[in-house]
């Protein structure tokens, strides 16, 4: 079974935590890690850690190296660039990224 992708309303933007992550679940049960960096940048990537094989990426620390903003997995510390999903520690892997937008103070994810 496949479902058509649509914009899904997730939560008020006030539920996000600055410079830290929260997690949302989509209609198809996919988990998305949401990060607010600074006052107005929001990133959405898959919450599943492909190394640790657990839904934990939203609990990782946000870091930056040479301008790339990434999340470091709380399990084994692999780093994933938030706007591309690329893994900085293993060039053969990337995690899924999602589009986001804000409508009437609510965060929406395309997924």
């Amino acid at each position: 079974m496949t479902t058509e992708n649509t914009w899904q309303t997730i939560c008020p933007t006030s539920d996000l935590i600055k410079n830290s992550g929260v997690c949302a679940i989509l209609a198809n049960q996919e988990q998305v890690a949401l990060f607010q960096v600074g006052d107005d940048t929001i990133y959405a990537v898959a919450n599943f850690d492909p190394f640790g094989k657990a839904n934990v990426l939203y609990r990782g620390l946000i870091g930056e190296t040479k301008g790339d903003v990434y999340v470091a997995s709380p399990l084994l510390k692999q780093r994933f660039v938030l706007n591309t999903g690329a893994c900085l520690d293993d060039g053969t892997l990337a995690i899924k990224t999602y589009q986001t937008r804000i409508t009437d103070g609510k965060l929406e994810i395309f997924g």
């Binding site: 830290s20 640790g52 657990a54 934990v56 609990r59 620390l61």
Partner: peptide
Amino acid sequence: HVSLQDTNDVFLGNMQKDG
């Protein structure tokens, strides 16, 4: 401070392999 802490400190517990 919350955004500075490792997950263990954020959730005040030791994270195990399954999260």
